[in-house]
Design a protein around this nucleic acid. Structure first.
Lengths: 187, 187
DNA sequence: AATCTCATGTAATGGGTTACATGATTTT
DNA sequence: AAAATCATGTAACCCATTACATGAGATT
């Protein structure tokens, strides 16, 4: 019985630490503000929330609250939950294992025409360019919140990371295209 | 029967496209040159290779070749395999889903002391700094190979991506530390 | 003698997404 | 009237890692 909900458990705790919420709003929250570095599906969220309650890390207030639809369940974090979250925060973060399919395709580039790879890079540049703009949008939004005395430094830092990473990816792809084209011209 | 070996199938094909190999050497190859953007375990490699043979995308020459140990099985790609690889290369790469645990912890930073997050960032900086050096080492190595007329442009591009991405991560973390410290000083 | 590396393989386990089921309210 | 959104939940499936099993040759 090695209860392992992986990281989802702590994500739920982190979300509930901000304010009591339903599984549904947690999902929306993650989609909106976390999607560039984290994602959770309902298939994870609902069972995990139930486990939190079973472990005493959260409580589910209002079993069925008739508002709209089927009724919603609001979860709140307990003191034990805050302790669990804070313990986890102290642990050294795991080294992330990346799986960039585009790098795989680039590395196998010899097995196709250069145009194929150049095409992928073009799309990649466009996507990352848009992401940089999105992240800068978030940065501004947080800046405005700060002026209204709302503390959101840590959230802003994740957006800043997005700016850095997506800019780097875009710049790399631009450079990569140049190098491939140069190589083709040399032939 | 939706035979889905995910991406591993194409990784194996890409490896065999370079030269006929054993599962063991494929593992070593991926560990050495791909680990920063891809990884495969034996539990994936061996069954996948067998499936490739079953699908006619590879052939296994030399069932048991007494050399050392239990004997090795060398796999070679077939024409059908090359076709499959090239078809896959043409497909638009999937959008990668990142899961950066450190960003999760940063975003929940309010639930712990700033020193905890600063500590994580310190380690993150060190790790990424080392990775940048490693990637630059690869870059040089590939440069030398180029001078010996070996074509390795595409492999070099993945190392270049490593330089870009790890530099960005390191620079972000340095900046993030500054911002957190500034905020603390303001209090 | 013990351990490390080469070498292949399977079974158990875990973590996560997708698809499906249900159903009320709100918007088009 | 139809479609979208709110809202919760389960089951199937897939992918991947880990642990385990086997065993020979080389090294310490």
């Amino acid at each position: 019985m090695k209860e392992n909900t992986g990281k989802s458990k702590y994500v739920m705790l982190g979300m509930l630490a901000r304010k009591p919420q339903t599984g549904y709003t947690i999902k929306k929250w993650i989609e909106n503000e976390y999607s560039h570095f984290w994602q959770e599906s309902f298939g994870q969220i609902y069972p995990t929330l139930k486990k939190l309650v079973a472990e005493g890390l959260a409580v589910s207030s209002d079993h069925v609250q008739s508002g709209n639809g089927r009724g919603q369940i609001t979860y709140s974090i307990t003191d034990a939950g805050r302790k669990e979250l804070s313990d986890w925060l102290r642990e050294e973060p795991e080294i992330e294992r990346l799986r960039y399919e585009i790098l795989l395709k680039v590395s196998f580039g010899d097995n196709t025409e250069p145009e194929v790879i150049l095409g992928h890079l073009d799309n990649f540049i466009k996507r990352n360019h848009k992401l940089v703009k999105d992240m800068n949008g978030y940065m501004e939004l947080f800046e405005q919140l700060k002026e209204q005395d709302m503390d959101c430094t840590y959230s802003q830092l994740t957006a800043l990371c997005g700016v850095y990473i997506y800019s780097a990816m875009r710049d790399w792809a631009v450079e990569a295209k140049k190098i491939i084209i140069e190589k083709e011209d040399d032939k």
